[in-house]
Every structure is written in structure tokens, then in C-alpha cells.
Design a protein around this nucleic acid. Structure first.
Lengths: 129, 129
DNA sequence: CCAAAACTTCACCGAACGGCAAACTGATCT
DNA sequence: AGATCAGTTTGCCGTTCGGTGAAGTTTTGG
């Protein structure tokens, strides 16, 4: 499933551009055609179509053509994937902070008790797990 | 507060590059120096420094120099901001889906009651869940 | 003091990006 | 049929991006 990694890749790349994030915002409020999407921003149809293609490659949007009109719809699954990535890293960071805090607290207790001053700082800079 | 918008902008742009996301992953596990960060990826120090600058502009990372060594640390607040953006849009989308579902359900009730026979299944093939 | 370590700056390269105008392709309207 | 509308494709342009090698700069170890 390295494909997932690459897909996440394209999803974040798609979200990198402010215009494309605005498109996502617009689509989260309801489906829209290429023309409807292009009109609020001052960009031409070809450019908008390119943005849509990028969003589709990132799995964020899908679109279908009916007659001469292409309608775009938001694909919330991919947003969820990016969200999951972010939350995972926030969680990892917070876990690290908790460990650090516990470590400091242990030191303070030791200091208060005034017992053996073997603070054991094996955590000078490294400490991966 | 348009400044927040631009900051979010740079944060997403920073996360667009896979190498930079890997840096974030690495830093979520603990602080690291420029050299330590560069070593796992096959890139030179100048390149790594550039990535760090991008992550700093996005507010994702901060770094400080002690002696001849620069140590980088993850700044979880910005991750949270990006996360909040994503969740807001997922929520908006889901609210929209709920409204749509309610609408369809109301119609079905109408159809069952045998009232106005305008069953209009505008829902030709969509509405997966 | 001298050399090595660890960045940092600089100048440059090729690829990718966002944008456009113009020409083309199918619907849809009159 | 002819005009029009909504995309779509193509080719181009200037900028930004990720990456490099070479030449500084500042600490640090001997």
C-alpha cells in the first residue's frame, strides 16, 4: 500500500495552492460546474480545469460530464486521510511532551525528597523510541 | 486576521513536499540538528536548510543555534491550525449530506403517502454512504 | 594557533507550476 | 443549418521549487 503514501502526497500537494483550497471550500458547500468554479476567481477555464485535474489526482474531488457541462463534487475521504496524518503527528508530539513532563516531575520529586541525587539524565539529546 | 489565512497558506505549502513531511515526522519524535535531519535523506545540508526555512515560514518548526549546531523543534500549533481547517471542511460537507438526506427522506414520505405523485428521483445513482 | 566540524550563503540548473490566448470539440438553442 | 455555449487541448511564458557544488563563517578540539 505504498500507493496510499503517494496518494496522501498528492492530496497535500493539491491543498498547497490557495486557489485550490478555495475550490475545496466552495465544493464543501455544494457541487459546482467548471464555469461556476472559475467565475469567483479571476482565472480562465483552462486554468480552472488544470486545478480540478490536480484535485482529482489527489483524490479530493471527482467530476463527471453531463452534456456539455462538467460537475465537480467533493470527495471527503481524502480530506479525512490528510486529517488523520496531521492528528497522528500531533498525538505523537503530545505523547513526547507527556514523557518529558513526567521526567521533569520525577526530578522535582527527587529534589524535594532530597534523596540520592542520581537524576539519571539519559535524555540529553537523543532518546528515540 | 488575514494574516492567519496567509500563515495557513504557507503551512499547507510546507506540508506539500514529501521530504518536509518526513522531517515533521522525524521531529514529532524528538528534536534534531540540521545534520541529523539531512542524513537519512540523501540530500545536502544546503537543501535541508532550505526545507527548514520553509517549515519555519509556515510556523511548523522553530530552530535555534547553540554554538555551531542548530537544533530544530516541532511547533504543534500550526499542525493544529491545518487540522482545524480540514475538519471544518469535512464538517461542512457532512452537514450538507445530512440536509440532502433529510430532503430525500421527506420526498420518500410524500411518495409513500401517495400524495402528489411527483416522486422525481433526482437521486439517479448517487448517494453512497 | 591550526584543523576539522557544522552550518550558511551564493550562484546556478533543470523541472514543475500557475497562468494565458487561440484553436478545437461537442452539446444546445433559434 | 447556423450560432452559441461549456469545456478541452495545445503551446507558450515567466516564476518558483528542489537540488547541487563551491566558497565562506563560526565553534570546537588538539
Amino acid at each position: 500500500m505504498e500507493n496510499l503514501e503517494r496518494h496522501l502526497n498528492e492530496a497535500f500537494a493539491a491543498l498547497a495552492d490557495p486557489t485550490r483550497r478555495a475550490i475545496v471550500t466552495r465544493l464543501s458547500r455544494g457541487d459546482a460546474t467548471v464555469g461556476e468554479l472559475a467565475e469567483p476567481f479571476a482565472i480562465g477555464l483552462p486554468t480552472m480545469l488544470k486545478h480540478i485535474r490536480v484535485l482529482e489526482r489527489g483524490g479530493l474531488v471527482s467530476s463527471a460530464k453531463a452534456g456539455r457541462v462538467r460537475t465537480c463534487t467533493l470527495n471527503p475521504g481524502a480530506l479525512g486521510a490528510a486529517d488523520a496524518w496531521l492528528r497522528r503527528h500531533i498525538a505523537t508530539w503530545e505523547a513526547r511532551l507527556d514523557r518529558l513532563e513526567a521526567h521533569v516531575e520525577a526530578r522535582m520529586v527527587q529534589a524535594e525528597t532530597g534523596k540520592a541525587a542520581k537524576a539519571q539524565p539519559r535524555n540529553d539529546g537523543r532518546h528515540d523510541d
